[in-house]
């Protein structure tokens, strides 16, 4: 499986509103336990749609290695 070079990374001040889950074309983001959004690294293609809509501005698009 070929992974994209970039991926979304969620900051710790996520408010779990779910905006990102609605726009993700790959369904790579989920709200885990009502606490925070989580990105499935294998599904994420780093398109940045989630970062554009995040009202809390906590999503960054980063190089794969940097998020881990």
């Amino acid at each position: 499986m070929i992974l994209s070079r970039k991926m979304a990374s969620i900051g710790k001040e996520c408010v779990a509103c779910g905006c990102c889950t609605r726009v993700c074309p790959k369904e790579a983001i989920q709200i885990a336990w009502g606490i925070s959004a989580r990105v499935d690294q294998e599904k994420c293609v780093g398109c940045g749609k989630c970062a554009k809509v995040c009202p809390a501005a906590v999503i960054d698009i980063v190089e794969r290695g940097a998020a881990q």
């Binding site: 991926m7 336990w33 959004a37 989580r38």
Partner: peptide, 8 residues
């Protein structure tokens, strides 16, 4: 994503 996991 581990950043989230830490903060969640």
């Amino acid at each position: 994503d581990s950043r989230t996991a830490e903060g969640a």
